[in-house]
Design a protein around this nucleic acid. Sequence first.
DNA 1: CCTCTATGGCGAA
DNA 2: TCGCCCTAGAGGC
Length: 274
Amino acid sequence: MPEGHTLHRLANALDEAYAGRRVAVESPQGRFADGAALLTGRVVEHASAHGKHLFVDVDSDLSWHVHLGLIGVFTLARLTGDPELDAPRGAVRARITDGSTVGDLRGPASCEVLTAQEVTGVVARLGPDPLRDDADPELAWARIHRSGRPIAALLMDQAVLSGIGNVYRSEVLFRNRLNPHRPGNRLARRSWLAIWADLTYLMPIGVRTGRIDTVRPEHEPDAMGREPRRDDHGGEVYVYRRAGQACHACGARIRTEVLEGRNLFWCGRCQRRG
DNA sequence: CCTCTATGGCGAA
DNA sequence: TCGCCCTAGAGGC
């Protein structure tokens, strides 16, 4: 379930559980044996996220780099002491524990041990992350306003800005009434600033709650006289995966098309601005 | 049992 | 643009 908020939330939880603690790292599935051997027995210094990348820094200048990809999941739980309950279930690529909290990683796109220099290289390829205090939105704007690609494509490009995935892309464009197909070089600067401001508002909410909620109070199902509805992904949204249903704001049918290989959703009536 | 889908990203053509 | 990788869960037969 990974957009940037998921990774920042996970980094916070890992930092809380393991910073300053000596950990054991295992490879239950057998595909991370070498990396686990490098990490096990070390003390975790800090866990952090940059875009959708997670870094767990351990002593001796090494970092565990994890990218969940589309289907990866990293779960944390308390050890119970019952070997049956505590045993890894399914295809667990990596397991980390300090003896009380256990973290299981399944289905990641990346799971590797990097040097500090290699971490710098990974981060250098990422655009500004709205969830990071050190992010500079001008770096993203510099690329957007020179590009002929649609804004809906640029928002997904992790080299332009990082951490935005397919849900936030559709939702932030809806909330700002922006046409997803507007080319970056025809997007008003004030529209970009509105996108950035909205992401820096929405994404920390996602970090706190672990879900993506974007619907303003006046459009919430209760306020509209409908039954509260929970989207499959876990949050309340305007357009994501609502193709053919009525727009919460105007009632028009939500549209969908594949853009950049991913399903884009938008309201053709509400979203006409550039 | 099978097929499809998913909040991602890579490399080949 | 397409195929492919990773895993789990839902739905169809």
